[in-house]
Every structure is written in structure tokens, then in C-alpha cells.
Nucleic acid binder design. Structure first.
Lengths: 150, 150
DNA sequence: GAATGAGTTGGAATGATTCCAACTTGCAAG
DNA sequence: CTTGCAAGTTGGAATCATTCCAACTCATTC
């Protein structure tokens, strides 16, 4: 069961939505809360399942709508990997993604500003980029058994 | 109509396929030739249309099969952008992609090795990345009218 | 020249996403 | 109030890229 939004998060939601002429609804609150509660880059289906625990009547279409709305007003980012289901991420700081091919998990990798700068600098003249997406693909030790010595 | 493969390209095809125990077929030759002929990151459907001009009986399933085979033996790369159709790219040098949101075109951006190095260096310990994908998203001046003064 | 196996084929199946028309809700104007 | 509107929600149908599958082709080997 998902916790209600903190006052702070509700305000963020309210402001971002208002900014593009939209309203806070019960469904949007829950979907947003689900995203904040477990930042494991859930798919639409994941969000749907989790949100339904708090609101059994919620429909899948609404989850799609809410997520699209959030992306539109800059509250969350989409994360695509190959042709798999789209995942969603409420981390707004500039970051890359690391996709563990063993587990399928996605991890955020912080992106230092100088890297972003140097990436921009490799664009030939005449190319203006608004967004840069970086994704690593490999294996991490997350699922490997931890050394038992500590 | 697609030109036949050069001797050099046919050899590359033959070797890469042989390397993973597969054979050169007429269909694979044509599909490969299509990729080399126009490096505009075609979709499967694009490749299908172009290849059919030379081989009208070719089936879409075969184009999917050929492209998958090529990816498997390292002859071409897949390029995904959001949830659009997968595109294919025979440029094997390390490069990023720039996606022009006005035209939908994809451009290759050369990636200097030191950038790749510095990107690898931001991964926390325990993360081993085999591949890094970088895609820019914005507008280029490709379709803007050139200055008429030169 | 029959058997084998890789490759090809067309059509059916899948699965994520989008579309749509009906329904609900909150609110503002009469 | 209560009527009407606009925004949001809903479930189911439609879409579309991709995958699956079983039948077929073809070159090779015994």
C-alpha cells in the first residue's frame, strides 16, 4: 500500500500540473506517489499493479494518461531500453542509466556537469541538442552474493 | 535498385557470417547491400521496400531474420529511439546518434575515445559496462535553407 | 537421388501502446 | 440548487512493430 504524498511532493505535483493547465486528481496523486515510493524504474504495468492496491478501480488507460501527463510537465522521465516496455523515473537530476543485463534492473548513474559539457562539445556546428540520453549496458555486482566477511 | 556488394563487402559479410556458423544467401547479400547503399538508418520496413526492388519475392520475415543475424554477428548496430521502429546502422566505428526532431533523421556523431574513457570512469565500482549508448535529441540545420550568400 | 539442415516464407499470434466513445466529476453561471 | 461545461477517467477495441510457427525450398552430403 502506497503512502500518501508528503505536503512537499503534493505541492510539486500541483505546481507542475498547474503550470501546464492541469489539475491534481486522486488518480494522479496515487500514480505520482507510486513513482516516488519505489524508485526502481517501474513499467506502466508495475505502476498499475502498485497503484491498484490503493485504488482498485484505477484503469490501465489512466495510468498511461497520468504518466504521459507527468512526462509532459517535466515531473518524470521516460527510460527506454531497446524495445522493452517503457519505464518511468522521478529522478530529475541529470543522470545516465545503467542496465544490468543479468537482472534487468536499471540504476541511475550521476552525470557530472563537465561530462555533459564535453559531450555537447563533440556535436558538429549546426547541431543543437536539448537532451542527451546515455545508457550503459553490462553487469553490476548487485546480485552477486556479498562477501560474507562484513 | 541496389548495387551488388563490392568484393570487399561480400568478404566482410562472408567472414562475419562464417564466424558464427552461418552462410551467405542471396537474401542476406541484398539486405546487407541495402544497408550499405544508403546509410540513413532505415527501419525494417525501409529495408524491406528497398530490397524488394531487387528481389520481389523477399519476405518481411526474412528481412527481420537477416537483420537479427547481422546484429548477432556484429555487422550492424540497432538504433532505437523512444518506442519508434528499430533502425539499422552499418557504421561500426564508435559513434553516438543525433536525432533531429524536426525531420526525424538520425545522424552519426563521431565519439572520441577520451569521451568514452571519461564516461566509463563515472561508473561506480562494481559496474562493468560492455556498451554505452549515447543519443542526442534536438534540431540540426540540415533542413534549414542554407545562407544564399555562399 | 534421398536425407539432412539451414534458410525462407506468409500468416497468425503477441504485447505494448493508443484510440475512442461513454461516463464521471467538480465547478461556474444562471 | 441544477444545468452545462470542460477535464479527467474508463474499458474495450484498434494499431503496429515484432515474434512465432509450420510448411516449403534449396544446396550438400552420403
Amino acid at each position: 500500500m502506497i503512502q500518501k504524498l508528503s505536503e512537499h511532493d503534493r505541492e510539486k505535483l500541483q505546481e507542475s500540473l498547474a503550470h501546464s493547465g492541469q489539475k491534481v486528481t486522486a488518480q494522479r496523486e496515487i500514480v505520482f506517489a507510486v513513482l516516488l515510493a519505489k524508485r526502481d524504474h517501474p513499467t506502466v504495468e508495475d505502476v498499475f499493479q502498485r497503484a491498484r492496491e490503493s485504488m482498485p478501480g484505477l484503469s490501465l488507460a489512466t495510468v498511461y494518461n497520468c504518466l504521459e501527463t507527468f512526462v509532459g510537465c517535466g515531473l518524470v522521465r521516460q527510460v527506454n531500453h531497446e524495445r522493452e516496455s517503457t519505464r518511468y523515473c522521478p529522478n530529475l537530476a541529470p543522470h545516465a542509466h545503467f542496465r544490468d543485463e543479468a537482472t534487468g534492473h536499471v540504476h541511475d548513474i550521476e552525470l557530472p556537469p563537465e561530462i555533459i559539457q564535453s559531450l555537447r562539445s563533440i556535436l558538429p556546428p549546426g547541431f543543437n541538442s536539448e537532451t542527451i540520453e546515455i545508457s550503459f549496458h553490462g553487469r553490476s555486482q548487485e546480485s552477486a552474493p556479498r562477501s560474507t566477511s562484513n
